[in-house]
Amino acid sequence: MELGTKSLTVYELLYVIGIIAISFSSIFVRWSEADVAVIAMYRLYLTNLLLLPLAWRYRNELFRLSPRQWGWLTASGAMLALHFLLWMASLRLTTVASSTVILTLEPLMVMLGSYFLFKTKASRIMLIGMFIAIAGSAVIGAGDFRLSGTALLGDALSLLGTAAVAIHMLIGKKLRESIDAFPYNFWVFATAATFLALYNIAQGNSFTGYEAREWGIFLLLAIVPTLFGHYLFNWLLKYMNATAVSMSVLGEPVIASLLAWVLLKEALAGYQLVAGAFVLFGVWLFIRFGDKAEKPEPKPREGETSFDRTETGTV
């Protein structure tokens, strides 16, 4: 499932598809009446169920992992589970605009982490694009931020969930250097779902007895924002730097707010639409120049050429 030759146009198209896909996540969660931990668990288990037909093709890669890689896969899955648990819970306490706009802090967290861990630097135009997008996102959510009651708790949960997914993204960036997209996604989703299952058992949440409508929402979450969103972004981590991929969340408040306006009847002012245009422009600047911020090649040691070096791929 890896492309042999990098085509920037193809990657940008897939990136946009991923942004649209993840924007439906908040809508589906708001439609469901199940506990958020149950929603997240079945979302991931059903995703892996849909991926099973490909498992035989990748049977060797699925189990050809070092103990160190298994350990970091577990950590990545734990962070993804924590992200879903906290962020989905925030959607029950605050508006879609407020919850998703806080996610725009993710690329800042990832950029800082990439700099310290991978020595990845952002270009000036990438920083400008990020600033434009974050400023526009802040405008979108400004009218919905409420510093009291359950809304404040919802905002705090979204912030903690953002930190969790940033850590997940940084771990994934390193692991994807040596693990193909399918085994990485399959095991991360399975691990995250299992952590959520243990949480549901501890909380006494029911695993059965849901109406057909709920199962339909679980399936939609597996197909749209997970397969065409998270899976796609994890696949792109091998071809784009982690900060550029994490910038996808800056487009989510725009599309999610529009969807909430149409489908959930949440208010959306004209100035928020204008801010949305600025967000999309900032995201476009970032993804257009995101490939220029990759980690530089290490200098060869004395007597060694670039062809002599091999990637260990472990963290």
Rank of each mutant, 00 (worst) to 15 (best):
F228L: 12
Y271T: 09
L221C: 05
A192C: 04
L263Q: 05
M247V: 07
L264T: 02
N241T: 04
E266G: 03
N234T: 09
R301H: 15
A190F: 12
A293C: 14
Q203K: 06
M247E: 01
F233E: 00
A193Q: 10
S257M: 05
V279F: 03
G209V: 09
I201Q: 11
L250P: 00
T310S: 14
F233L: 12
R309S: 12
E214F: 01
A197P: 09
F278R: 00
E266Y: 03
A192I: 01
L227I: 11
A275G: 12
L232E: 02
R309W: 15
F186N: 04
Q272G: 15
Y271P: 02
P300H: 05
A202V: 10
L237N: 01
E294T: 10
L219V: 04
G303P: 14
T194G: 14
K299F: 09
T191K: 06
A222Y: 00
E311T: 15
P298G: 08
F307C: 13
A212E: 08
L250H: 03
G251A: 03
A256V: 01
I201V: 13
Y199W: 09
V283I: 07
L232C: 09
I287P: 02
E302A: 15
V274A: 12
W215F: 03
P225K: 02
G276E: 07
L250C: 08
K238P: 03
E304P: 10
G209Y: 08
T312W: 12
W261R: 04
A202W: 15
L219G: 00
T191E: 10
F207D: 09
F228M: 07
E214H: 01
E294I: 11
W284V: 08
F233M: 06
V254E: 02
G303S: 13
P298F: 10
F286L: 13
Y199Q: 07
T194D: 14
P183A: 14
F182A: 14
T312D: 13
L196K: 10
A242K: 00
H230P: 06
